[in-house]
């Protein structure tokens, strides 16, 4: 197994108490797998993905462990994690293409990053140039400033940089949101190519957009209010979802081909519960059209068939 997450709990410390953004999540990602992590805002997907790489000041790991290629990751220890960051596990943060320092040339920025990891820039330069050519960027990109490149080119530069040392796990946080359709496609195809070439072993792709996961991901994990509600191969999630939330979510997505005049789509009424004081029992119950008395007890994540896990009493 490339990545094995066991009962992970990550919380934000606030004045009013702990907000458990990731509440007892367990899953694993195999070698060569691209797993999509989908859900809406506040479900905990970004927290989950980021916590695997770095915990910012307010985040705390309250329970659980994470194993990468058999080694436990010291998530709470910043200095110890430094050994893993960028080398074994890497993160492409959200909006990274506009986060490049506008006053630094690309090459200089990359050299600063590798030097901070005690690697000589000269040693990686040949491989860096090879990678740039691989993703369709001219090597003179290294001499340019970020503003001279397009958004898509910047995004590809960031992805080359973060995967330079062939990480076992790449966490891509909303790398295709806020991109134009053509650039989205280029970046999505790049993620697949990085896996196909063996540069990245496994990938977790965090997004709220299920349709891009259909194009890119092998499997999808859907989160709601800090919990995993369903995990299955991509085609299964889209064609035969078992959890009510997943079903309703898919039914609310307009595809090219659906028109209001012919068929009015419906959303999911209500909103997710507050994670400061989450309800006992199933967290989706108050919005679920199938809810009943048994939903007052939290359903466990159960494997219904090979590779398809669902947390719902109604599904089994």
């Amino acid at each position: 197994m490339s990545l094995d997450v066991q009962h992970l709990v990550v919380a934000y410390r606030t004045l009013r108490g702990d907000v458990r953004a990731v509440d007892d999540v367990s899953f694993s990602v195999a070698d060569g797998e691209i797993m999509g992590l989908a859900g809406e805002s506040g479900c905990g997907k970004s927290t989950l993905g980021n916590s695997l790489v770095r915990l910012d000041g307010r985040m705390r790991v309250l329970a659980g462990r994470v194993l990468l290629d058999g080694t436990e990751l010291p998530l709470s220890d910043w200095d110890a994690m430094d050994e893993f960051r960028f080398k074994k596990i890497s993160l492409v943060p959200q909006y990274s293409m506009s986060a490049l320092n506008p006053t630094r040339r690309i090459g200089k920025m990359i050299s600063e990053v590798v030097r901070s990891r005690k690697i000589r820039y000269k040693d990686v330069l040949p491989e860096l140039e090879r990678r740039l050519r691989l993703v369709g960027l001219p090597t003179d990109v290294l001499a340019k400033y970020p503003i001279e490149l397009s958004g898509g080119m910047n995004q590809r530069v960031v992805m080359v940089l973060t995967t330079l040392l062939d990480p076992s796990l790449l966490v891509a946080d909303e790398v295709t949101s806020a991109l134009d359709v053509s650039t989205q496609r280029a970046v999505g195809e790049l993620l697949v190519e990085l896996r196909d070439l063996g540069i990245v072993t496994s990938t977790i792709m965090i997004t709220h957009d299920l349709s891009i996961l259909v194009q890119v991901a092998d499997s999808v994990m859907v989160m709601y209010a800090g919990k995993v509600v369903e995990r299955a191969p991509t085609a299964t999630i889209v064609d035969a979802p078992r959890h009510p939330y997943t079903k309703l979510l898919i039914a609310s997505l307009p595809e090219v081909g659906v028109r209001y005049a012919e068929h009015v789509l419906t959303g999911i009424p209500g909103h997710p519960p507050s994670l400061l004081d989450p309800p006992t029992g199933c967290r989706f119950a108050d919005r679920c059209p199938f809810a009943s008395a048994e939903c007052a007890v939290e359903p466990p994540l159960v494997e219904l068939e090979s590779g398809h896990l669902v947390a719902c009493w109604k599904a089994s």
């Binding site: 053509s182 259909v214 090219v256």
Partner: peptide, 14 residues
Amino acid sequence: KMLLASVPRLHSHW
């Protein structure tokens, strides 16, 4: 045509 071809869809591939 390029736009329509690049839009990610739920039930078909690029």
